[in-house]
Design a protein around this nucleic acid. Structure first.
Length: 594
DNA sequence: ACTGACTGCCC
DNA sequence: ATTCTGC
DNA sequence: GCAGAATGGGCAGTCAGT
């Protein structure tokens, strides 16, 4: 199909992009949204397409290069208040009602003149804004952004606010942009898979957009894995039991699931030196953080490779892995050397995506694991290992292996289809996680009391509730202590219902028998009457929540809390007690004994 | 030098 | 991370 | 089933203020 060259045109104004964002925001049909985006891409130069792709996702560049405005809801309230010349309180109130600070802009009269800034100029300004730092920079940032807002029309200002907040809420993200690039080339989404492939192996959406607009699908097709540019990681689905997993995929491969952080490692040997990069699960560059792992990986007998694994801190005395809260302390910018000594890391590798110039993505799980084992096992470095993999044919065998792993203190197992390729960027049932928290089912839940609620953002703003604060009962002190906030598990209707229930119990101040630390105070206090059943993956020590907190002991909190159901047959003082929380906490360290 | 408020990013 | 929802 | 948008605990980093 012949693609006519896009007509030469004037440099694109940011206001035109904002106009398209507005059209898209009003559109609920994904196909129409995609068509609008395609139209926008067709009007843009390749470089402009790149910038559109970045800005539409609230970023300024590739994910792995990072965008950090260090300017979010609090700073934005100040800037918006100045631009609109109203009080910060008024902006806050309006933001609460609409659930969106950007929308506040277009709710008020706009008195500023549009300077017709181009898309490129706005991008450049945002880069400059992002770079403001150091003493006095809080005020500098407010001033800079206020001035920037004052130089555009209201619609542009609305989207500038959302770009900086990194929440465009337009109803599309990367996959829709890829559809739009296909539409821009051929008028349908038939090229989606090929463009997505390029994006999956070269995770820079702006680069893909520019390439597609400049060189068409031929240019996109030329993209393969480049060592040093991250590949979008594959992710696992979740199922609640060994039986469900075997039923889903049959004969499978199981491996331990470790509770650390995921690293994608890129290695490339040049004549003298070896280039080594680490990327986080979300594709941020962590290359400077782990000199110990870096040294270990230099031993790999490869010219070039991309491997993935889980990094975990371990106890040098016992060799056992430390909890996530310890491991995550290694994610830092400063004091790397000293923390390295306090919290040495191991890297358990579980996949290989590229080796010596060849992509391994299409190879089967088994082939990849074998190749990985071959290179790592010849390395013989104590910090490196390959995740054990066993073949399981039955639910019983899987259940046994699962129990064995949680007894060893691990998070559970990941089960994989033996013949599946590595599907970058995908979460599907090629990989399935079975987590420790599924063990026992009902006894892993907590009966808690609702103590208050918070206004929501976006869609939840219209419910007047976005999350609630819950607590457990301290028998000795006869009071309620907080253990978590709940922001998920309620359907839209249930949120509305919860809001009504809470409002019937609304009180003006924190009740005398409720312990809440500063920073967790809800927007609306509720008398401790509403009982809920809450599920969580784990109980952790908490610097924030008051459950079980004493003068010389941290409190406890729930990891990954979610609402299950209401509990009508218990009164508030029959909520799970602090004592029970403590014993649940103690129990989870000795999971094998049951 | 310390603390608290805020932000960004791990899970 | 988990969960819900529109398509 | 996908893509997107709500939300959680808790860590380090930055800056303002004392």
């Amino acid at each position: 199909m012949h693609i006519p060259p896009s007509p030469k045109r004037f440099t694109m104004h940011f206001s035109e992009v904002a106009h398209y964002f507005d059209l898209i925001e009003r559109e609920s049909s994904r196909v129409k949204m995609t068509q609008l985006l395609a139209e926008l891409f067709k009007k843009a130069s390749p470089h402009e397409a790149r910038i559109i792709a970045y800005l539409s996702l609230g970023t300024l560049r590739a994910t792995y290069e990072g965008t950090q405005f260090n300017f979010a809801s609090k700073g934005m309230v100040v800037a918006v208040a100045r631009v609109l010349d109203i009080s910060e309180a008024a902006v806050s109130t309006s933001a609460t009602q609409t659930g969106d600070l950007g929308a506040v802009i277009t709710l008020h009269p706009w008195t500023h003149t549009d300077s017709q800034a181009t898309l490129i100029e706005i991008h450049r300004a945002l880069v400059e804004f992002e770079q403001l730092s150091g003493s006095g920079s809080v005020e500098d940032k407010v001033r800079y952004f206020t001035t920037l807002l004052q130089s555009v029309d209201a619609l542009s200002a609305r989207y500038l606010v959302r770009i900086v907040l990194q929440k465009l809420r337009l109803g599309f993200s990367e996959m829709t942009l890829i559809d739009a690039l296909s539409w821009a080339l051929v008028g349908n989404k038939s090229l989606h898979d090929r463009i997505e492939y390029a994006f999956n192996v070269s995770a820079d959406i702006g680069f893909i957009a520019e390439l597609s607009c400049a060189g068409g699908i031929a240019a996109v097709d030329s993209i393969g894995i480049t060592v040093g540019i991250p590949i979008r990681p594959a992710a696992a689905e979740r199922l609640p039991s060994a039986a469900a997993i075997i039923e889903k995929i049959g004969s499978a491969i199981a491996e331990p699931k470790f509770d650390g952080f995921r690293l994608q490692v890129h290695v490339k040997k040049h004549d003298e030196k070896t280039e080594l990069r680490f990327f986080s699960r979300n594709l941020l560059d962590m290359s400077a953080m782990f000199p110990d792992l870096k040294a270990a990986l230099l031993d790999l007998p490869v010219q070039s490779a991309v491997v993935e694994g889980e990094a975990l801190a371990f106890d040098e005395q016992t060799g056992s892995f430390l909890p996530f809260q310890e491991t995550v302390k290694r994610r830092r910018k400063y004091d790397i050397q000293s923390t390295m000594e306090e919290l040495p890391l191991k890297l358990v590798l579980f996949d290989i995506l590229y080796l010596n110039g060849e992509s391994f993505l299409e190879k089967s799980q088994s082939e990849r694991h074998n190749a990985l084992a071959t290179i790592v096992n010849t390395t013989n470095n104590a910090l490196l290992s390959v995740a054990e993999e066993i073949r399981v044919e039955t639910a019983d065998a899987l259940q046994h292996y699962f129990l064995q792993n949680i007894t060893a203190g691990l998070e559970g197992v990941v089960v994989k289809r033996p013949d599946s390729s590595y599907q970058p960027g995908k979460r599907n049932f090629n990989w399935i996680k079975l987590k420790r928290s599924e063990r026992g089912k009902l006894d892993d839940t907590i009966d808690a009391v609702v103590l208050g609620y918070y206004y929501g953002k976006g869609k939840r703003a219209s419910f007047g509730i976005g999350a609630c604060l819950i607590g457990v009962y301290n028998k000795e002190e006869d009071r309620f202590e907080t253990i978590a906030k709940i922001g998920t598990g309620f359907s839209d209707d249930e949120w509305k219902e919860l809001r009504v229930k809470c409002d019937t119990q609304k009180v003006n101040d924190c009740p005398h028998n409720v312990m809440v630390t500063r920073g967790l105070e809800p927007d609306i206090w509720v008398a401790p009457e509403i009982m809920v059943v809450v599920r969580a993956d784990e109980i952790t020590r908490s610097p924030a929540h008051t459950a079980g907190k004493t003068a010389d002991r941290l409190g406890f909190a729930l990891r990954f809390p979610r609402f299950l159901e209401y509990r009508f047959d218990k009164s508030p003082t029959e909520a799970t007690s602090v004592d029970e929380v403590v014993s649940l906490f103690d129990q989870q360290k000795v999971v094998g004994e049951e």
